[in-house]
Structure formats: structure tokens, C-alpha cells
């Protein structure tokens, strides 16, 4: 949103602003307000999840055990690493080092793509384990353990949470790619690097959501 506003603009600051500081503060506050809406957007899922977990503790603990915690853990590490490189890219933007912006962003994008890859592999494994509700959910696991009906609610929440997170990842990857492209073209300098910071905020936020998604879905293994 706001970063695109600034990107397409030829004049800096934009005509409605008095100076660049005002524009920079406005863009930062705008992004944070948007992120506040995102907190509540994901928050609905967490609220529902924890209410149902209180209600069906056994089914939800079994659900957590049916997921591959190590894949989730690896993904967390990958995403934290990606966030680290975006932070480095923002730092590079502040000192106006074009090469370092692009290099760090490309590493971050590669890690992000890796995350998506692992995530979809996981979806494949869950399909194989007959865990997808309404598609092939089976009341008996491949190992012969019975599964509670309410585990379907767990799996639904799993797919909705990780699905929306993956969607945000894909949007974020596109944004980072656009920023990297413009950085390579020399659009940003030490004086003007707002879009890099704003895009960075978004990417860190996606990371932050995952930090909560991971323990919520994978680690609450005891009823």
C-alpha cells in the first residue's frame, strides 16, 4: 500500500506532505496501523482455536501429535533467518548501500521460498496421513490409532491458520521482490529508503505471526 504510493511517485516528498520527515512518519504509522488490523485478523483464529482447545483438550492434543513438529521447527528457524536478512537489508538501505540491500533481500527471498516449499511438503504428508477434513479425514490414523471427530476442527484451524500465513508469505515475497528490483535500479538512497523499511516491517510481521502459530499448533501436545 503505502510503499507503492511512494514508489510510483516521482516527487519526494509527495505533494500532500510538507517535508520528507512528515511523509516518513506517516508511512511508518500507516503501516503499523495496518499491522494492528492484521493482528486482529489472525487473532480471530487464535481466539477460536484456544476456546475449542479448552473444550476438546484430548482431540486437540492428538491433533498436535499428528503434525510433524520438526518440520514446523525447521520452518520457524528458516523464517527467523529470513527476517534477520531483511533487517540487514533495511540497515543497508539506511546507509545507502545498494549492493547489500539486493544481496540480503535475495537471501531473505530464498529462505522465504524454502519456507513455502517445506510448508507444502507438509501439506502433502498430511494428505497422505488422511488428515484433511472433508477431503480425506479418516477416523483411524495410518498406525491404527482412533481419531476423535473433533480433531477435524483442529485440522481445519491448522489449514486455515497456516494457509492464511502462507498467503501473507506469498504477498510478502512479491513485495520483497519488487523492492529488490527497485533497489537494483538504484531507486533508494540514504535519504530515501522508506519503502524498504515499510516492506521490512511487513515481512517481520509475517515472521511474528508464525512465532505464535508454531507453538499453538505443533507444541501443545499434552491434553
Amino acid at each position: 500500500m503505502s510503499q507503492l504510493t511512494a514508489l510510483e511517485h516521482d516527487s519526494y516528498p509527495a505533494e500532500q506532505f510538507e517535508d520528507t520527515q512528515q511523509q516518513s512518519l506517516a508511512a511508518t504509522l500507516g503501516m503499523w496501523t495496518f499491522l494492528a488490523t492484521e493482528v486482529l485478523f489472525f487473532g480471530v483464529l487464535f481466539t477460536g482455536f484456544y476456546m475449542y482447545r479448552m473444550r476438546w483438550p484430548d482431540a486437540f492434543a492428538d491433533g498436535a501429535k499428528d503434525l510433524k513438529w520438526y518440520l514446523g521447527g525447521i520452518n520457524t528457524a528458516v523464517l527467523l533467518g529470513s527476517s534477520y536478512f531483511v533487517a540487514l537489508a533495511v540497515e543497508a538501505a539506511r546507509s545507502g548501500d545498494r549492493r547489500r540491500i539486493v544481496r540480503n533481500l535475495l537471501i531473505a527471498i530464498a529462505l522465504g521460498v524454502m519456507f513455502i516449499g517445506i510448508k507444502f511438503t507438509e501439506y502433502g504428508i498430511e494428505y497422505h496421513d488422511h488428515l484433511v477434513p472433508s477431503l480425506n479425514f479418516s477416523s483411524v490414523s495410518p498406525e491404527g490409532q482412533p481419531r476423535a471427530t473433533q480433531e477435524q476442527i483442529f485440522m481445519t484451524y491448522y489449514f486455515v491458520m497456516t494457509g492464511f500465513h502462507a498467503l501473507h508469505m506469498i504477498v510478502g515475497l512479491c513485495v520483497l521482490a519488487v523492492i529488490a528490483f527497485f533497489a537494483r535500479r538504484g531507486k533508494f538512497s540514504a535519504a530515501y529508503h522508506n519503502p524498504v523499511e515499510i516492506a521490512g516491517l511487513y515481512w517481520h510481521f509475517v515472521d511474528l505471526v508464525w512465532v505464535f502459530v508454531f507453538p499453538t499448533l505443533y507444541l501443545l501436545r499434552h491434553p
Binding site: 477460536g48 477434513p133 472433508s134 471427530t149
Partner: peptide, 16 residues
């Protein structure tokens, strides 16, 4: 998708 979220027949809670 006919997945259970609020459907009381499958453990969901309409009040949520």
C-alpha cells in the same frame, strides 16, 4: 468446504 468450524453436530460452537 464442509469442514467443521461452528457446526454443533461436529463439535463446533455456534456461540463462537
Amino acid at each position: 468446504f464442509h469442514v467443521p468450524i461452528f457446526d454443533p453436530n461436529r463439535g463446533g460452537d455456534p456461540l463462537l
